[in-house]
């Protein structure tokens, strides 16, 4: 096994999780021009719901997984309806501060219910790693890559092929025009929240299967996924996937060069650099500022 191959493999595994979470940010931003700060906490919720079902109540993982996704999807639906929709015409900071509030609320709720100590999915022995192209990859890690790829392909098909997916793109392009040609914008927004939250939940369980669960796990993943969104160009779905993989790789290869204590800071530094020098991202479209309004 070579270290380089291993670091790249680790980067891709982390990256596919970031990509799953980044999809939620990018879809919501594409449509509402709003950063859902609580998105990282939905990821955390997904992990805890999965844990409760599977570890605490013994529900098989194959059932626990979709159930957690559905629960979080439903939560995303109500979150939008209750907390964000009333603020749709408010100044930008209003939904943003609300979202910060929601994120803190969910974190503290998780601490109250589950305690601050870590939880883990792992029950038995850690399975033997498989040697793939010079890197050791555990079956769980392989699952992470396969499941997240499948989910992303499904999302891609959904956006490209279905009617509601096309409506999503129309609303992202121009909300007013979309509503004048008869697209139900509210429905599209709900769908986006449901799908985004379900994907985040999937990411949460996948991470939970491999690492420990903590109530604050959503914060750093949230920030990294958000960075991925910016890197890929906010509002762009392929951009989110590419950005996620890029962040995963940079972060894991980066610990070769700088002390590991700064691992989490890498994403922030990329984020700041991107925001400063290329806020439209790699795949994002450049938009001239609209002076009229």
């Amino acid at each position: 096994m070579s270290i380089a191959a291993q670091l790249i493999a680790n980067g891709l595994i982390a990256g596919s999780i970031y990509a799953l979470v980044a999809l939620g940010y990018t879809m919501v931003y594409g449509i509402l021009k709003f950063i859902n700060f609580a998105h990282g906490e939905i990821f955390m919720m997904g992990a805890y719901i999965g844990w409760t079902l599977h570890v605490l109540w013994g529900v098989p993982l194959l059932i626990a997984f979709p159930v957690a996704m559905i629960c979080c999807g439903a939560f995303g639906y109500f979150l939008e309806k209750i907390a964000y929709k009333p603020l749709r015409n408010a100044p930008v900071w209003a939904p943003l501060i609300t979202a910060i509030g929601v994120s803190i609320f969910l974190q503290s709720l998780a601490i109250l219910i589950y305690g601050a100590q870590v939880k883990t999915f792992r029950t038995g022995e850690v399975a033997q790693g498989l040697h793939i192209l010079g890197a050791i990859i555990t079956p769980i890690q392989l699952t992470i890559i396969i499941v997240s790829t499948v989910l992303m392909v499904l999302l891609w098909l959904f956006v490209k092929k279905t009617k509601i997916g096309k409506a999503m793109r129309a609303v992202a392009d121009n909300r007013e025009v979309a509503s004048t040609i008869g697209i139900n914008v509210n429905k599209v927004i709900s769908v986006v929240f449901v799908i985004g939250s379900a994907l985040a939940a999937a990411g949460g369980i996948l991470v939970g299967m491999e690492q420990n669960l903590t109530p604050t796990m959503g914060v750093s993943v949230g920030i990294k996924a958000f960075t991925a969104t910016i890197v890929g160009g906010i509002g762009s779905i392929p951009g989110a996937v590419l950005g996620g993989l890029a962040i995963g790789l940079i972060e894991n290869i980066g610990i070769w060069f700088i002390p590991s204590g700064y691992k989490d800071a890498i994403a922030f530094i990329i984020l700041l650099l991107m925001l400063i020098f290329k806020p439209t991202g790699i795949l994002g479209r450049k938009k001239e500022e609209d002076v009229r309004g």
Partner: peptide, 18 residues
């Protein structure tokens, strides 16, 4: 206790905004 405090702040933020 810390979590409860945080939760209180969170609820205040959300309610005030709404």
């Amino acid at each position: 206790a810390a979590a409860l405090r945080q939760m209180l702040y969170a609820i205040i933020l959300i309610l005030i905004m709404l």
